[in-house]
Computed example of a mutant assay.
Amino acid sequence: MKIEVWSDFVCPFCYIGKRRLEQALEQFPHREDVEVVFRSFELDPNAKKETPLTIHEIIANKYGISIEEAKRANADVGRQAEAVGLTFRFETMKPTNTFDAHRLAHYAKEKGKLNEMVERLFYAYFTESKRISDRDVLLAIAEATGLDRAEAEEVLASGRYTEEVRRDEEEAAALGVRGVPFFVLNGKYAISGAQPVDVFRRALEKVWEEEQQASPLRSLAGEGGMCADGSCSID
């Protein structure tokens, strides 16, 4: 089973949804047969790398609410994060542009380190309050993930993996994705949002059961001579 996850590294529900999916997979008996692939999605492609605004002020401006209302909303999200073992530090969070982080994730994917990179980027932003557009921050994350720092620096300086990020975003648009996280199971089943663990678990079970029952072939004749189980029929 393949699960594709469109998400952004500054999206709180993307991190919560990631953890809820992981918890569902822990309860899934066939988890070793599930591949999770993270795809790029920028919530705000025009976001600046640095802003004087706090995350509370950004939320307040975006939704036309007061700073206090924004703080209460963020506190609620923080409690949801705590419920799945995450720590969100809204007071020191550094809102930023995520394009370079997505490019770095594609580089990590090529090196077989995508899942580790995605987790470290989320953790750096939400828990460590790091600016994940900063070149030195990204290089430190790459190195901690087990990637070559000099090669990662060349990736970031050269603009490599820009096309890969854009292709992910174009595919999301073609699928009608307007918000993240967005999960696609086996290319034909979709889950939108950071759903409860039970929703993910039931979806895994349903897709697995249907995929095991489905056959891509339709028989055009009855059984003839064939070999199976170490012997051949000669009737």
Rank of each mutant, 00 (worst) to 15 (best):
A173N: 00
S158H: 15
A101P: 09
R20W: 08
E143N: 07
E205F: 06
N97W: 05
A70R: 12
L156F: 11
V5L: 00
K113V: 10
P52L: 02
I3F: 05
A24M: 10
I141G: 01
C227A: 13
R120F: 06
G225P: 10
H56R: 11
V137K: 02
A70W: 11
L156S: 12
M1I: 06
F122C: 04
V36F: 04
E116I: 13
T96I: 03
V34S: 11
E211P: 06
N97G: 03
R19K: 14
A47Q: 14
S158V: 14
N74A: 03
A140M: 09
Q195D: 02
T127Q: 11
K206W: 10
Q27Y: 00
F99D: 04
P52C: 02
D76Y: 12
H102K: 05
S215M: 02
N186L: 05
S129R: 09
Q80N: 12
A194Q: 09
K48G: 03
Y125S: 01
E154S: 13
A142M: 07
E164G: 01
L217C: 02
L104I: 05
S129Q: 07
C14Q: 05
E4A: 04
A108N: 08
V197W: 07
A108C: 09
R131K: 10
R149Y: 05
V37M: 03
T127S: 14
I58D: 02
S40H: 07
R178S: 09
L217F: 13
S233E: 14
L121S: 07
L21Q: 06
V84L: 06
T92C: 14
G85L: 03
D100R: 14
E69F: 14
I16G: 09
R31L: 07
G176H: 00
E22M: 06
R135W: 03
P45A: 04
V36S: 02
D168A: 01
A203V: 15
L121Y: 08
V10K: 07
I55K: 13
G85W: 07
H102W: 05
F182K: 01
P52D: 04
N115L: 15
Q80K: 15
A140K: 14
R167H: 08
Y189K: 02
E116S: 15
D168I: 01
L86A: 02
I55Q: 10
Y63V: 09
A24Q: 11
G179C: 00
L43K: 05
K94P: 05
D198G: 06
E211C: 02
H106M: 05
